[in-house]
Amino acid sequence: MSEIVKTDVVIIGAGPVGLFAVFELGLYDLKCHLIDILDRPGGQCAELYPEKPIYDIPAWPEISGQGLTDRLMEQIKPFAPQFHFNRMVTRLERQAYGQFHVETDEGEIFEAKVVVIAAGGGSFQPKRPPVPGIEAFEGKSVFYSVRRMEEFRDQDVLIVGGGDSALDWALNLQPITRSLTVVHRRAEFRAAPDSVKKMFELVESGSVRFELGQVSGLKGEDGVLTGATIKSADSEIELPVTRLLPFFGLTMKLGPIADWGLNLHENLIPVSVETFETSQPGIFAIGDINWYPGKLKLILSGFHEAALMTQAAKRIVSPGERVVFQYTTSSTSLQKKLGVN
């Protein structure tokens, strides 16, 4: 087990609202660690619409999802938040002495006085393709990402998809596999043209097999895959397959949050509108993941919630200390924290 990381606040989710919470908490000297399942900050803004314009951020008539993320990252820089990407929080438990332990699927443990859930629509998880019985093979023969390349050595590997993940892994894994087949539903690819060209060179030389179609069935027992059926418009073929890598993008799932003993309302977390605290004292929920009467899933609502949550969080972290409300425009102490004075 790794060493326990101690901090004031753990923020689950590094989307715009989680990022802005760092700013509000930072003004009150609360140090934050952020954990996100994606490989970069921005949440839905980065994953779903980095290039798409947003029109309802106050004072920004038009800003892209990526632009908003970049500016938030710049704004919170003075508070030196610690980011932990590519991790899912699996457990959240209050310890006997009142602090929380936050555990990730990488086995890390964070100890925090306050936990802020800013998880948006939940965690982004790989989409499962519509193949009957695929669940039984997951983790043994079917993988949605490559964590260890050795898992694929001397295997008959089938990669499904036409994006960068699919083609990059086809090119990287091909040298170590026994056979490698790529299946995609159409002749056009989203992946970088250079990767597509390289893959078709391997197809020409006979090192990679390409099939136009969709996987319609799997064969095998006890999670051990032996074959797959590929269905195209006019034919059906069977291939020997021992490893399947489907790349169908990501979808949002509430995930382990449902197991943390919080009251839920239609997969959302009800909160107090005064403090944005959940049914469990010390655990807050802000942004799209929370619910209260009149809730609107807007980024600006999440920003407001972050500011109010901070007042309550500060009282928990520094009990007995007077919480002084100040403006960044006029407070020299806040300006010092921001590094502008």
Binding site: K127, P129, P130, G161, G162, G163, H184, R185, R186, E188, R190, Q214, F248, G249
Partner: peptide
């Protein structure tokens, strides 16, 4: 259009 086709790759039972 092309962008929609790209996204359809991610849809269920296309």
């Amino acid at each position: 259009e092309a962008m929609e086709e790209d996204m359809l790759d991610f849809a269920y039972d296309v």
